[in-house]
Design a protein around this nucleic acid. Structure first.
Lengths: 174, 174
DNA sequence: CCGTGACAGTTGAAGGTTCAAGCAACTTCT
DNA sequence: AGAAGTTGCTTGAACCTTCAACTGTCACGG
């Protein structure tokens, strides 16, 4: 029941590609779940929120404009706004206006937020190590780095305006 | 924040690991977004729902017990229940009871669901190709397969029942 | 100075995911 | 048979993400 028939089909995934695609799909689905579960049981926040806090903590002033923060964490402005609102309500982040440009808001990591981060970081890195790096040797890590850098580069590009994706004549291997 | 306290901290990520971890995190975050956006604009469903339909379409009878379907798509029973309910409401899946075990429900892909799938499959595979395989040569694909298979194997294991949670710094509440 | 447009961030509603309960049907043990 | 436990799936509430619309601010040009 594979859709191989259409004349408009750009070339189906071959066996090798499929053998890479299915596990990748699984990793992409299960890895955030694993990270979320651990963090949520330890701190009550998902790993997306943790990433916000961690990114702030890495800044010299523990503060960042919303836009920059959104860019660094690869999230949408809307999502970040909601996230920072939730984190602010829990006292881990505070907002401060920018003196020179009143459109800009800075998100600042509070001492409480920093303490929280310090508390959960060990467990978090242990989990990352368990699910990712414990199974890999140095060469694997190097290959993973190259591959993921390539993919994240493509994913960072704009989402392709519209329909002009499907023009690929090249057929090589079935 | 550089934690190196041997006893509680398992060992921080070194430079090589960090250089692999950050792009991996990004891929894990952006890849589902890219797939979701494309599918949602074409069919009004996210890629999780598409995966349900696709898995059903690959079965001999285009049907599967909920439990099996949950296992194959690596989703929780609850999530699948909600998903199938939504897909059923749109007429792409129907539920049928099992004659021999009345606890079991079969999810069946309808003709409409199959037609939808046939319609979106070309665009979907084109997107997968664009964001993943267009940037990789045959060796890269082989490496990706090995790496992702390893990781998905670890992730498939039980979420660590109790094991090493010992260090609970407990900052929660607040 | 005022209008236009771009930019930074927020808001609310709709939909998806998760968690903890819960119900019903099967199994096992006595 | 009947009680107790297990399995298979569903439900509802809380939360998170997304999308489109919106507010307020700045920059530019007449």
């Amino acid at each position: 029941m594979t859709a191989q028939d259409g004349a408009t089909t750009p070339r189906w995934l071959d066996e090798q590609e499929m053998a890479a695609w299915l596990p990748l799909l699984r990793v992409v689905q299960l890895l955030p779940q694993a990270l979320d579960r651990r963090l949520r049981s330890e701190a009550g926040i998902g790993h997306a929120y943790d990433q916000v806090l961690a990114t702030l903590s890495a800044q010299p002033e523990r503060a960042l404009a919303m836009g920059e923060l959104a860019r660094l964490t690869a999230t949408s402005p809307s999502r970040l706004s909601h996230a920072v609102a939730a984190l602010e309500e829990r006292g881990w982040v505070s907002r401060r206006p920018c003196p020179t440009d009143r459109r800009i808001q800075y998100a600042c990591l509070t001492d409480g937020g920093f303490a929280l981060l310090a508390g959960i970081a060990p467990g978090h890195v242990a989990e990352v190590r368990r699910v990712v790096f414990d199974g890999l040797d140095a060469e694997d890590v190097a290959r993973l780095r190259v591959l993921m850098t390539t993919l994240s580069g493509v994913l960072a590009e704009p989402p392709v305006p519209s329909a002009q994706v499907a023009r690929e004549g090249h057929v090589r291997g079935a």
